[in-house]
Amino acid sequence: MDCGTCETTGPMVVVQPDEIQVELTMSDKATEMLQQAFGDDRSHALLVGVLSGGCSGYMYDLQIVETTDTACQELTINGFRVLVPSASSHLLNGIEIDYVDRMMGGGFKINNPNASSSCGCGESFA
């Protein structure tokens, strides 16, 4: 096979969507739960990312991190550091981070105005 490692072909240019200055909100319940998780420690941040995959094509990825190698926008929401990867900004602008208090299927939830559909578990969206 010819893998094209010569001058005959180069990598295709992958056009990334323009970075958007993200605005997001956090519900009172989510703020309360983050307060429980972080306490008074503000050295860590909540990373709100998107991964490809899931039943609907994209999956939310919430992590508590100290730092990240990913290029991110840093926001301060209700006193908490929130990191949003620049490459996913077009998918996350306008989201609300909520917390649903249920025995099953509870936890942090993302309400996303950019999502045309989402899967039953709420972790995946399109």
Partner: peptide
């Protein structure tokens, strides 16, 4: 595929014409 790279360090080459 393209819209799902999401900033990942992935490159894509079309080598169909070579093979």
């Amino acid at each position: 595929l393209r819209v799902r790279f999401l900033g990942r360090n992935i490159t894509l080459q079309d080598v169909s014409h070579l093979n």
